[in-house]
Amino acid sequence: MKRLTYLFLSLTLVVSCASGDDLPDQGEPTNDSIYFPPLNSDTWETKTVSELNWNEAQLQPLLDFLEEKNSKSFMILHEGKIVVEAYFEGHTSTSPWYWASAGKTLTTAITGIAQEEGLLTINDKVSDYIGTGWTSSPLDKENLITCKKLLSMNSGLDDGLGDDISVSNLQYLANAGDRWAYHNVYVKLQDVIAEASNQTWSNYFNSKLKDRIGMTGAWIQTGDFNVYWSTARSMARFGLLTYSDGKWENEQIIPETYLEDAINTSQNLNKSYGYMWWLNGKSTYKLPQSQIEFNGPLISNAPSDMYAALGKNDQKIYVVPSKKLVIIRMGNSANNENFGLSDFDNQLWLRINALIN
């Protein structure tokens, strides 16, 4: 067995904590009950599996499965406190890893912040901010593409031409709003925000989100794209921010109404997609590189109210309001290379359920 480090520590200063009976409760989280780690410290309060009346005998099988499936890091937060934190293959709490497309949700968050500041309106045309001719589409078709169409992946641009987002590769296939297709053209939102804010994407991101919730990490240029790299704990901070309705302690970071729209169905073409968040519990779903509509929920073993940021090679942020959980997985692909969703999600949730139920 490869070297494995994991953490599920007792919190001695807390005299009351959630019991297993608390977990099925529905309803929105309240900030009074949510723990937020300090901004300028890596200290993080914890709860134990036994305090939550979870099935402790199922913890090691879960960790063994994660190790077998090429994981680097795994975390479970309950109401913001760490219950499980595990690292594999020499990875540690200070090791950075890439978010891949799970980082799309960072762009979602920043877009909402920029709109709240009056820098943009998501119903405006993309060309209002970066000029016309950013695609190869006829002008009347390009002008149908709003910022919201990029958020919800229904730009109408041809998704079958590869990852290249040069002008020549952004070609018209259908009217914006008429076809859902997972497309890397979303990254143009970063150009919109840079133009609207009159600063670099990274600087705006750092000042409006990263620094305000104590994240570490950086955007690293990979081909045509900025890919975010950070520790698992920084990914967990962002998941916690989203779980807490966009608020960090008493400060509203992501506008609450906008975030509510982001984690609900954003268009009628793929019910399981919000603003770059994947949504469980819907009646149908579509997947990247396919126009097939599948029946049933996205991840059948996961709670119906779960929503997720999913990245290539199984980078995961799961947020489950009804269970008061944020769950992080980083690593290499669990099986074959994939675009984010895979059978690994269902198999992982089978083992998470055995632990928490």
Rank of each mutant, 00 (worst) to 15 (best):
S300M: 14
P297Y: 10
L39Y: 07
A18T: 10
I165P: 03
T30S: 10
L325P: 01
A218F: 00
A194M: 00
S283C: 08
N203F: 00
D224T: 09
I299T: 10
R212T: 12
T43N: 05
D21Y: 12
P29R: 09
E249C: 04
L157Y: 09
Y243A: 01
E116L: 07
D124S: 06
V187W: 02
Y6G: 08
L120M: 09
P303Y: 02
N357G: 11
S19M: 06
G246D: 02
S19Q: 08
S322F: 04
A309S: 12
L63S: 14
I34H: 07
L269G: 12
S41Q: 11
W277E: 01
M235I: 09
E67D: 11
I110N: 04
G311K: 10
V15T: 13
T242M: 09
S155F: 10
E68N: 08
D124E: 06
Q289M: 11
P29Q: 07
L310Q: 11
E142H: 14
L106E: 04
L9G: 08
G112P: 01
W219Q: 09
L350N: 08
K324I: 01
S19V: 10
N40A: 06
L39D: 09
I352K: 06
K247L: 02
Q58I: 00
T265S: 12
G20N: 11
S155N: 10
S155L: 11
K323R: 11
E56C: 06
G311N: 10
E337W: 15
Q58S: 07
N346V: 01
E28D: 13
Y318F: 14
A109I: 04
S101R: 15
E117N: 15
V126A: 07
G239D: 01
D158P: 03
A232G: 13
L161N: 14
S244K: 03
E67K: 03
S137F: 03
G160H: 14
T231W: 03
S244C: 02
S300N: 12
W219G: 06
S272I: 02
L161M: 15
L151H: 01
K271H: 11
F74S: 08
K247G: 04
T43G: 02
S342A: 13
E195F: 00
W201T: 00
S290I: 07
Q291I: 10
S136Q: 12
G90S: 08
I82N: 08
G214L: 02
N203Y: 01
P24F: 02
G239E: 04
L59V: 12
Y307R: 07
D22H: 04
L106S: 03
P37S: 05
D245R: 10
L13C: 09
L279Y: 05
T231N: 03
N70Y: 06
V84I: 15
I82P: 00
E67W: 02
W97C: 01
K210L: 01
K271D: 09
N184I: 08
E256A: 08
N70L: 05
W278R: 14
A57L: 14
Y285P: 03
V167D: 00
P255L: 04
Q347D: 15
K81V: 12
N264H: 10
W54H: 12
S244P: 02
G156C: 13
A102K: 05
Y275T: 08
K323Y: 05
S300D: 13
D305Y: 00
Y6W: 15
E251W: 07
F74Y: 15
P138L: 13
W201V: 00
W99E: 01
A174Q: 15
N250G: 08
